[in-house]
Design a protein around this nucleic acid. Structure first.
Lengths: 241, 241
DNA sequence: GCAGTGAGCGAACAGCGTTCGTTGCTACGA
DNA sequence: TCGTAGCAACGAACGCTGTTCGCTCACTGC
């Protein structure tokens, strides 16, 4: 059931941290799980760890959350729920859409490698995910694109955002803050790997090692966005059936 | 080490299936694992299951394979190794590239939900993956696209292929063959879910439920390919630095 | 014919998600 | 004010996972 009974909260907030019976709730569990993902990464997230953080046992969580998959879905829903939903303006739809997607990506990368969970869950079924899809569809429709083009496009685009977020997050240790040194070291490692390959077999990869690992701010992400929207506009005249 | 010592193969092929000491090898293990993924899906793949299939224990596999991650990498490498690599023709580069990507996708979807493993492994480091990247780069360069555009594009494109394969495979039960009935049932379920949503909050999703779940052959995949290549050509004039 | 080497292997470990049966607090009715 | 019903919380356990540890023993080179 989605409606958890309202949690009782006896006494002042945080007054008795070690009272025997803590007041658990979906929200508290999701909050705690998100904190773990933020600081230690998705791999460190397990039911026992969440329970430990709440000073209880894993079994207690199952009164509020069906299973780990549902917990992950709730995490994603929470992250997608943090998005602002602009009013579509036909004159600015493209920039609005790009801004919306930037926000979506930033939200994801700010929560460790949570994007990895989003990658598996391909079709949005949670309120937050549906809200995001609805907003994106509205922006595309505001651009005057045909219905079927919008339908196909919304899939490709959100896929790109999630995948980019995943790639971005994989460059950072689960530690947390954007240590520029860390990212640079990772990129450098990949570049030297490409450079070290046999040039007879991989001439282009070797020659383009620099271009392939270029990492200047959000240039890569922005390139993909422009590519997608240019392609989208070019496909606008396409007919179906 | 990548060079496994040449496996001894005593007697005729399959002559003594129940001799005490089986001749294991990387190839045999990979082959067996791939068979399991094909027939039962990626979730059913574990070391004990592979060992059981080979009539031995899980521990025996670790003499040939470092760990499960390496096994997955080997599986992916094998699948990517099955690709044909066309000679780039500047007059036909776009159609060649599209055909190459279709092949890539078909290879992936023909092996259950193996694409899920490919999704995590973002940067190709195995011979097969590098071969695919090299070929794709050659095709893009044959199109006369700038170096940095090719570098960014090869990432976005291969991402799209893998993600599409993943989505496709998630529509089938691990059972195996493309049961059209099954896919239709899945799609229908998603469509009716979209239709059943509250129209006040999700007007576009409800109205476009049909378009969003349209599944006519490879139209969806081809749409994405055309979108990407149109966008790519549009981005060709872009300058960097 | 024999010693030595290393693959094969059973057993075990630590960790995972999840379930079971019990406990004990809390809110409510008598 | 007391008793009790209901249910969240909980410890322990189950079955599964990937992986490691030594022992065994068949094959190889001498």
């Amino acid at each position: 059931m989605t409606t958890a009974s309202t949690p009782t909260w006896p006494g002042a907030f945080g007054a008795e941290p070690r009272r025997k019976r803590r007041a658990l709730s979906r929200e508290l569990i999701v909050e705690t799980a998100l904190k773990i993902v933020d600081t230690e990464g998705l791999d460190a997230l397990n039911m026992r760890r969440v329970a430990q953080e709440l000073g209880t046992g894993a079994a207690s969580l199952y009164a509020h959350v069906a299973n780990k998959d549902e917990l992950l879905a709730l995490l994603l829903d929470r992250v997608y729920g943090d998005l602002g939903h602009p009013e579509p303006d036909p004159d600015r739809w493209r920039e609005q859409a790009k801004e919306f997607l930037r926000q979506q990506r930033d939200n994801l990368v700010s929560h460790g490698d949570l994007a990895r969970a989003a990658m598996i869950q391909n079709i949005p079924t949670s309120p937050g995910g549906l809200d995001a899809a609805e907003t994106m569809l509205a922006l595309l429709r505001a651009g005057g694109l045909p219905e079927q083009v919008c339908a196909y496009a919304v899939d490709v685009i959100s896929l790109y955002v999630v995948a980019t977020a995943l790639e971005e997050s994989s460059r950072k240790k689960p530690g947390g803050q954007t240590d520029e040194r860390q990212v640079e070291a990772y990129i450098g490692g990949v570049r030297s790997f490409f450079s070290s390959l046999p040039a007879e077999r991989y001439p282009l990869i070797v020659a383009m090692a620099g271009a392939l690992t270029r990492n200047v701010g959000d240039e890569r992400f922005e390139f993909g966005l422009d590519l997608l929207f240019d392609g989208l506009v070019a496909q606008a005249g396409r007919t179906f059936d």
